[in-house]
Design a binder for these strands. Sequence first.
DNA 1: CGTCCACGTCTAC
DNA 2: TAGACCTGGACGG
Length: 269
Amino acid sequence: MPELAELKLTAQFINENAGNLKFTNIEKNPVHKGAEVISPFKKFKITSKSRGKELVLYLHDAESSDVLPIRMTMGMSGHFRMTNTGGEDKHAHLKFYNTDGTVLSFVDVRRFGKWKQGFEWSDNRGPDPTVEYDEFVENIKSNLHKIAFDKPIMEALMNQQYFNGIGNYLRAEILYRLPHVNPFISARDAIQQEPKILELCKAIPDLAFMLGGGRIKSWENPLGEMAATPETRRDLFQCYNRKGMSTIKDRNGRRFWFDPKWNSERILN
DNA sequence: CGTCCACGTCTAC
DNA sequence: TAGACCTGGACGG
């Protein structure tokens, strides 16, 4: 479930499903290399917030106002599910057991997701473009002289220090909606020439959120019927994974999807 | 069977 | 700037 909109939907899913329950213990799947998560509380409830591509779980002590944060990222395949005890997924790696017989699980087939008990947001990731839009814009404008913005805009959009939450499908959809912006020119030039890029860094994730997420695989689907239908997905995915579009591998080995009209411009350096 | 591919970071030459 | 980290689905022989 893993770009900005999916992280936001994940936090919402947790708040709707775990905020009133009483959790008692936490289990880590031994196959996962991550640290054990130890609850200092006998009973607790769980709430969550997302910011870009990070998510924080908050364990709230049932007996006091104490709160324990757990910083998480979802990797390529991480998501949360509620199941009954005994029905946990094979790839559930963190399991929060409830007194009512249900379990909140962090399910992550590829195990690229991570967690760190006792921490909230990383300081090397920028503001969330959807809920901290002014800070997001300021962070970019005041750093536009830096070398990160020498890179082509299609690559800079993946830099989480400035574009926290933008991933491979969002960069494609953002740039595709600016038909006059050459995705291979420097990020600095692109942003100065077309400040609307920054607005789309909010608008496209907002659209994805509204449609229930841009999820690509059905097994990453904790949202059930809320998830986008094939028809509404077409509003979101006009470029990424679409027949007729061009692709190129960027310097990070990620496939960038773009309008074929830019093919003559695609010189990386 | 085998090879390629996937919504993301990380760290090590 | 390669690879490493992982599983599994799609597709080819």
